[in-house]
């Protein structure tokens, strides 16, 4: 059983009770099958109730679930012949971002994504999916490569943010992110970004200047973490739950604000419950998106991206 999140407690308790009864009937000669069926029906209802009325903070917890599928989990399920390419050709290889080429239903594509680790050891190597400048520069190199060979680009966004470290500043974290924003604007090939976990601020946006932006149902996209927002706005990081609501960071929020294109439905309880099933959902969105964008010319793609971001903002004249 995977890690339980606070809002899932009632489900876990009921499931435990069912297990208990089942074990009891197995050992003792008592027929409780009708009770068990009843409880199982209740469980289904309870699960639907709870998972379909998730609060923003619940979604944050699911988005951060340690077993939530990562970029690599989706790469292996969605694409064939993936070859990873390394390095920014200037400084090093940042394992917080992975990239390479593969085929998607026979179509050659370039894939770039933030990569978290599955355990502590891998997380140290991948810096918990928080890139340094060389990560963004590798991403840009692969995007330019994709453009040269007319391959669509698919980005997976899954980061708490760009790494706030000394070395990152020295090597130009700001410039690396900023450069990607400008260069992505002018790419002559289709760009699709999918937020699969946390979309943390500039570090996420640096892979996000896309023609289509999709979000998994329980992913988040925000200018700052709920904890960070709470400490800046109310000087109290423990108000993160309230900040998660106030900042409007969930997929339905971003859809309502017209910033993203599609919400990709998650399997009940979250993507970590079934990465295979989740990949099927992503595949159908990706396929639709690619089909639409591949019909556009280079100029139309650039105009499309321009208009998309040009129109974001709320003000009056």
């Amino acid at each position: 059983m995977s890690k339980t999140l606070a809002f899932e407690e009632p489900i876990v308790k009921l499931r435990e009770k069912i297990n208990e009864l089942e074990e009891y009937t197995a050992v003792n000669d008592v027929d409780l099958s009708s009770e068990i069926v009843n409880l199982k029906n209740r469980l289904v209802k309870l699960e639907t109730d709870i998972y379909e009325s998730m609060e923003p903070w619940d979604r944050v917890q699911v988005a951060r679930h340690p077993e939530r599928p990562t970029t690599m989990d989706y790469i292996t399920r969605l694409f064939e012949d993936f070859i990873e390419f390394h390095g920014d050709r200037n400084f090093g290889d940042d394992e917080a971002i992975i990239g390479g080429i593969a085929s998607f239903e026979e179509m050659p594509i370039t894939i770039i994504g933030h990569q978290r680790g599955k355990d502590t050891k891998e997380n140290v190597r991948r810096n918990f999916g928080m890139p340094h400048p060389e990560g963004y520069r590798k991403a840009l190199r692969l995007m330019k490569q994709a453009e040269k060979f007319h391959r669509p680009i698919i980005c997976f966004i899954d980061t708490k943010g760009a790494y706030p470290g000394k070395a990152a500043e020295e090597r130009g974290q700001s410039e690396a992110i900023a450069r990607n924003l400008v260069e992505m604007a002018g790419l002559k090939v289709p760009v699709i970004s999918i937020v699969i976990g946390e979309g943390g601020s500039g570090g996420a946006l640096a892979l996000g200047v896309a023609n289509h932006i999709h979000m998994l149902e329980n992913s988040t996209y925000s200018v700052i973490s709920p904890e960070g927002a709470a400490s800046i706005l109310w000087k109290d990081p423990s108000l993160a739950k309230q900040a998660a609501e106030a900042m409007k960071i969930t997929a339905p929020d971003l859809k309502e604000m017209n910033i993203i294109d599609e919400i990709i439905p998650e399997v009940l309880g979250g993507a970590h419950r079934d990465a295979n099933k989740q990949s099927v959902e992503i595949r159908s969105t990706l396929r639709r998106s690619l089909k639409t964008l591949c019909e556009l010319t280079s100029d139309e793609l650039i105009d499309n991206r321009y208009n998309k971001f040009r129109s974001i903002g709320v003000f009056s004249e």
Partner: peptide, 12 residues
């Protein structure tokens, strides 16, 4: 996040 997106808007 609307503020975040202004970074992209100026960039395009």
């Amino acid at each position: 996040v609307i503020s975040l997106m202004q970074m992209a808007k100026v960039s395009v």
